[in-house]
Amino acid sequence: MIVPVSYYLVLGAILFSIGVTGVLLRRNAIMVFMSIELMLNAVNLSFVAMSRALDSLDGQVFVFFVMTVAAAEVAVGLALIVAIFRSLGSADVDDAHVLKG
């Protein structure tokens, strides 16, 4: 007996919502960033599950690409955080509101 795909999807939904809540709650840029990674991860899980359900490899390829993009994104994003930390002396996303136009 195999676990039905909807179980995975529900798990993905829960993880995604936790990620969203993290983004909304946390003020530390690093934590916000990790919450975003969590959301990506949740979506990846759903992709793989659907790849199985639909009998297609496209979902898995997509996950592969998401991971690469996420790696690039993390590199640039962390560099940005470091730069902001250096100029503002803080990694609090709310302190960056001085950037508003």
Binding site: V20, V23, L24, R27, V93, D94, A96, V98, L99, K100
Partner: peptide, 14 residues
């Protein structure tokens, strides 16, 4: 909504 707080923007997006 235009306070410059990213999380407020995120909230409205959600």
């Amino acid at each position: 909504l235009q306070a410059g707080y990213v999380r407020v923007y995120a909230l409205s997006m959600v």
